[in-house]
């Protein structure tokens, strides 16, 4: 990684120690009650809401000197959000940073789970815009809190059923609701539903931070995460017709890249690290020839 200037005058990882303690206490509760949204006193961060202030606060609270940090934005290590958050912690905490999934101890993510399997000892920190899975079905926080307390998730099933009634299948493709450890229904953040199966029995600890909405929640390692579905309409992930045009990977999540004004396009790995690692190892895809559409 390029050398970055260390900031002086800030506490380690930007946040003051009192704020870190408050966030740490919230994280411990979140781990003890998997899938439950713990309210926390979210702070103003030096970036706008919607840019990952929740994830940044969780990362700042857990980060130590010896951690190796990776930040991804839609699977990519080199988009604005990922680059600036990585530089933020390289400057304020002077931690080692990487793009390699395997080398990272803390991975902050906006809406993807890396393709490379995670391992014990890693922490995946999600940036979450709307933590409440029932919010668009019931706008009142007092009510959704009650629904969670009673484990009353009929609303969510009605929503999924209405998808089937209207489209013939469950048309929800991202932020697909999951049930954690058989109790709380949770928003996995707007990850593609393609990534939902990776949350189940994941060896890494998964922490979720929503800065504007002031909520932290967690999925401990090796915890059952079940995507909601129906017996006659079981949960299915997207599939792609063609492999990645750059590395030829199959069974990975692909991004559509427009190539020209004539409708030319190709599908490439959303996980840039995975794609680069495969290309370094040899396999080369078809280039721009792919015309593979995604199926929900």
């Amino acid at each position: 990684m390029s050398a970055v200037r260390s900031e002086t005058g800030y506490n380690f990882a930007y946040l003051d120690e009192g704020t870190k303690r408050m966030i740490r206490r919230a994280i411990l509760k979140a781990i003890a009650i998997p899938g439950y949204q713990v309210p926390f006193a979210s702070r103003e961060m030096p970036m706008p809401y919607g840019w990952g202030t929740g994830g940044v606060q969780v990362t700042a609270a857990i980060l130590g000197k010896r951690d190796v940090l990776k930040v991804i934005d839609q699977g990519s290590d080199d988009t604005t959000n990922a680059v600036s958050i990585r530089a933020f912690f390289a400057r304020t905490a002077d931690v080692a940073v990487t793009t390699r999934t395997r080398e990272a101890t803390v991975i902050q993510t906006r809406h993807r789970i890396p393709e490379a399997p995670l391992h014990e000892g890693q922490v995946l920190v999600y940036q979450v815009p709307i933590p409440e899975p029932l919010r668009f079905l019931e706008p009142r926080e007092t009510e959704t809190r009650q629904l969670h307390a009673l484990a009353e998730y009929g609303l969510m099933h009605v929503k999924l059923y209405e998808d089937i009634a209207r489209h013939g299948h469950i048309a929800t493709t991202y932020a697909y609701p999951v049930e954690v450890a058989g109790r709380y229904v949770m928003d996995p953040s707007p990850t593609p539903k393609f990534d939902n199966p990776k949350m189940d029995d994941c060896p890494a600890l998964q922490l979720f931070g929503a800065g504007r909405e002031k909520r932290i929640y967690a999925v401990p390692p090796h915890t059952r995460v079940r995507s909601l579905d129906f017996e006659d309409h079981p949960f299915r992930v997207q599939s792609f017709d063609k492999p990645c045009a750059l590395c030829g990977a199959e069974g990975v999540y692909l991004d559509e890249v427009l190539l020209d004004d004539a409708g030319g396009r190709m599908f490439v790995c959303s996980d840039t690290d995975h794609c680069e690692e495969r290309r370094a190892d040899g396999p080369i895809g078809t280039g721009g020839a792919g015309e593979g559409a995604a199926h929900a």
Partner: peptide, 16 residues
Amino acid sequence: VHDAQGVFRAVMDALA
């Protein structure tokens, strides 16, 4: 700063 972080991470890992 770092001692508190180390203790927290040990407790976090133990709970997780």
